[in-house]
Design a protein around this nucleic acid. Structure first.
Lengths: 150, 150
DNA sequence: TTGCGTGCAAAGGTTTTGCATGGCA
DNA sequence: TGCCATGCAAAACCTTTGCACGCAA
């Protein structure tokens, strides 16, 4: 299918290693560079972006757009082959930023429901359910009422 | 709660009018400016961004991040008050951009399910289910196979 | 040796910010 | 008159691109 030849290089290995080390969470291109720099692995920013692009189109890595923190940016996450992220939902807590992978039969049924009753195919890669996780909800309750933004 | 005083101005009126005219679809800050310029209404870009921010935090307008076209950007859409958006889900077609308000008992149950079983409160104002609507799916089928990313 | 990969810096795009001025109340 | 709102331009930001050199195969 994709006939592009690809060379194996130190940079690619190190970038991929970093993604795998962080497979539990999202990481920005900048964070990857910082992380590599910390361990005295110098990789140019352009290289990181270029390789990430390739990994994303290969399906090895998933790309999200996230607004947490100050400036919005893309975040990348290694796709664990054992987890079928395309079949479950993602919940993201607006307070603590935690991403929860939700594997649940009930939600699978919801998919079918939306498809059959509402004629819409949900893309689990692009969709994230935003809200508040239980832990944060408890904390907020103690503090009084809550607000949408920080 | 929010005690900030707000003045009524020509610019605000015109921006809001433009959003309401386009309430069926989403629109970028740039498109708002272009649309206003066309009708000889001069409004600075900074003003548009600033007012949009305010409208978003008020809940009058919803803000999305969309990657369609060349450069990714934020898109805005007026929230129709007559619809109780905080209680239903929103589906957004990634192809045609249409926003579908989904009032459905089944999905309400899903909320309870997520809350009770997964200890997570879904925020319907911030959450959008992305995917493909039936109409667009049909079109794509005609054109051949589809791909996840472009 | 071939041509993909890399690094640097510059370009590109949207969105934000600073500051003086304008205009609502 | 007081203070919010506006406009302009510059800044800030992330991401992409051009180009010469490096380095797998």
């Amino acid at each position: 299918m994709n006939s592009t030849v690809s060379y194996k290089t130190r940079q690619k290995d190190q970038i991929l290693e970093c993604l795998i080390l962080n497979k539990e969470r999202h990481i920005t291109a900048d964070e990857i560079m910082a992380s590599l720099n910390q361990r005295n692995m110098k990789v140019g920013k352009a290289t990181i972006y270029r390789y990430l692009d390739r990994l994303v189109s290969e399906g090895t890595v998933r790309k999200y757009f996230v607004e947490e923190g100050k400036s919005p940016s893309y975040q990348y996450q290694y796709v664990d082959r054992s987890e079928t992220c395309s079949h479950h939902y993602h919940l993201k807590c607006l307070d603590c930023g935690r991403l929860i992978h939700l594997d649940c039969k009930y939600l699978g049924e919801m998919d079918s429901h939306i498809k059959e009753q509402h004629d819409f195919h949900v893309d689990h890669i692009k969709t994230v359910l935003y809200g508040q996780c239980g832990t944060c909800a408890e904390q907020k309750e103690g503090e009084g009422k809550w607000r949408n933004e920080e």
